[in-house]
Design a protein around this nucleic acid. Structure first.
Ligand SMILES: [Mn+2]
Ligand SMILES: [Mn+2]
Ligand SMILES: [Mn+2]
Ligand SMILES: [Mn+2]
Lengths: 150, 150
DNA sequence: ACAAAAAGTTAGCCGTCACTAACTTTATAC
DNA sequence: GTATAAAGTTAGTGACGGCTAACTTTTTGT
């Protein structure tokens, strides 16, 4: 009976979607950290543990743990009691994460969502938008934004 | 200097956004489970551990653990070796999660995103959209969908 | 009815990402 | 230049959400 086969296929696709979400969750923290590190370096000259802690709403100890993981994964470098630097890979991830972030935020703004809500929702949504959806966001922005053309 | 104050305010808002994302992650698994349990009960008459495992792409043991947590949190009931039932709270969470899920998916479809991508992205995005953003999605759907009116 | 298969459970493991508390190092103020 | 404050680190804890392996119970097929 091909009825059972269909059902199995559907279950398999369903499971694959959840696996993708789980994968996204694993890279999420790294993306947010390197994006913030890049910003702090850009705006203040350096990224210190205490600043990351304040801006992320976690303790110093948590930041320390995470930074060690990022270092293990080749995204940052840091020497004891010194501030944190991005590796080339870290810079690249920060840049692409940032581009994606502002695209998602701007899309929400274009939809009529308020500033703070757009920023807040973007912080979570950004990690779950595929390239195809980002393209659709860009298309929508191009189609609606041209208010300057008025 | 109010310059410093501004910076502190910005950091605080930033941190609050991340706290919201972390909270969303804590309810995410519960939402997906009850939504799937409701669906399986509806479509097949019962929700069994093995089905949840297949549809979620995890092992039986993982499902068992999670179901115990859901039971602890008052969302499901289940007796040893029997299938799983939703409590009233579980049914309510399943229903609202499902409504939100299809809204997010339909919105992506309306934007021109392909079916499988819409379904996949919705699975992650759904947990990070505020009420305000959902309203904006609905507004956009109403503004564009009326193709039946053609 | 009973053997084999399927389903469910339990135990023990691991990584992530939080926390607090205690400690060390660096920076600041006087 | 030294005491104090701030920042950073380390150690230890815990929940969550995954896993495998071994076991028990239920279902199925003959
Ligand atoms: Mn971001
Ligand atoms: Mn984010
Ligand atoms: Mn989901
Ligand atoms: Mn869902």
């Amino acid at each position: 009976m091909t009825d059972t086969d269909d059902r199995e296929q559907e279950a398999k696709r369903h499971a694959e979607r959840f696996q993708r979400v789980r994968e996204a969750h694993q890279t999420e923290v790294a993306e947010d950290y390197v994006e913030l590190i890049a910003r702090l370096i850009d705006e203040t000259g350096e990224a210190r543990v205490v600043d990351l802690a304040v801006w992320l709403g976690v303790t110093n100890a948590t930041v320390n743990n995470t930074v060690q993981r990022l270092q293990r994964d080749g995204l940052v470098t840091s020497k004891p009691y010194r501030s944190i630097f991005l590796t080339e890979a870290g810079r690249e991830l920060a840049e692409s994460s940032h581009q994606r972030h502002i695209l998602v935020r701007d899309f929400l703004l274009a939809l009529g969502v308020g500033e703070e809500t757009a920023e807040a929702d973007a912080e979570g949504i950004e990690h779950h938008v595929s390239a195809e959806t980002l393209t659709a966001f860009r298309r929508h922005l191009k189609a609606t934004k041209p208010k300057k053309g008025n």
